[in-house]
């Protein structure tokens, strides 16, 4: 069954084939569930002119924010950005392009991309700047805009556990965009906290079946918290 063994042993191998100008779909919401070591590897590689499809763009010094330092990002397709000063600076200087996309539409664009659906209609964004220039169609008396699917040259994903065959489970709300991202990459790379043998994960509890996954690597994670909020115990 070695043909199904997706495990790679170095981050160089994990991101091999990434080239300037490619589109990368990244899982994560804020700093939660982001493939932090795969992002660090892209920084090490110095790949440029990249388009990232990711809900957010990290913060200064962490997450996708680290790729702004050497201007590796040409375009972001995101629902919410600007938690980092460098991002704002490059945006205002015209060095960075942003395509703001409603969060649910972004998730669905990835899902559709991975599922072989080229476009879909949604009421989200109709009558707003998001709908400008997009096809409008009426269904049952309501107007919808057509949104096109997204696929990437690479998808970078953060899982909790994976088996060698690339079956992945996510932990808590670190799931977020990761399952959709995993389906939408020509090459999907998943980094996880633990790799187990096939059969150890309950087949009925797999979030991402291994068919979507090309490479699996075990990493160690900082898991930075963006808004630390507590109550008195």
């Amino acid at each position: 069954m070695s043909g199904f063994d997706k495990v790679v042993n170095s981050y160089e191998e994990a991101m091999a084939g990434l080239e300037d100008g490619m589109t990368v779909i990244a899982g994560g919401f804020g700093l939660c569930g982001i493939p932090e070591n795969l992002i660090a590897q892209i920084k090490t590689m110095g790949t440029k002119e990249l388009t990232f499809v990711s809900n957010n763009c990290g913060v200064d010094g962490f997450g996708l924010g680290v790729l702004l330092v050497d201007r590796q990002v040409r375009k972001m397709i995101s629902s919410y950005v600007g938690e980092n000063a460098l991002f704002e600076k490059q945006l205002l200087a015209g060095e960075l392009e942003v395509e703001l996309t409603p969060q649910g539409t972004l998730a669905e664009k990835m899902r559709a991309g991975g599922a072989g659906i080229p476009a879909f209609y949604t009421a989200t964004g109709y009558g707003t700047p998001v709908g400008d220039g997009k096809e409008v169609r009426e269904f049952n008396g309501r107007n919808y805009i057509m949104e096109e699917a997204i696929t990437g040259d690479f998808a970078i994903v953060k899982g909790w556990k994976a088996d060698r065959y690339g079956n992945v489970v996510y932990r808590d709300t670190a799931q977020n965009f990761n399952p959709m991202a995993a389906t939408a990459g020509k090459i999907t790379v998943v980094e996880v906290e633990e790799i187990v043998e096939p059969g150890e994960l309950d087949p009925a509890h797999i979030h991402t079946p291994g068919i979507y996954v090309n490479r699996v690597i075990k990493g160690s994670f900082e898991k930075r918290i963006e808004q630390r909020t507590v109550r008195q115990g």
Partner: peptide
């Protein structure tokens, strides 16, 4: 760090909660 809300604040799950992907959520 793996349990946050839409405001990116750390939270807990209530009894009977469920957790799912962004596509499912929307």
């Amino acid at each position: 760090a793996d349990m946050i809300n839409a405001g990116k604040q750390t939270v807990t799950a209530a009894t009977g909660a469920s957790i799912f992907s962004s596509a499912e959520s929307f």
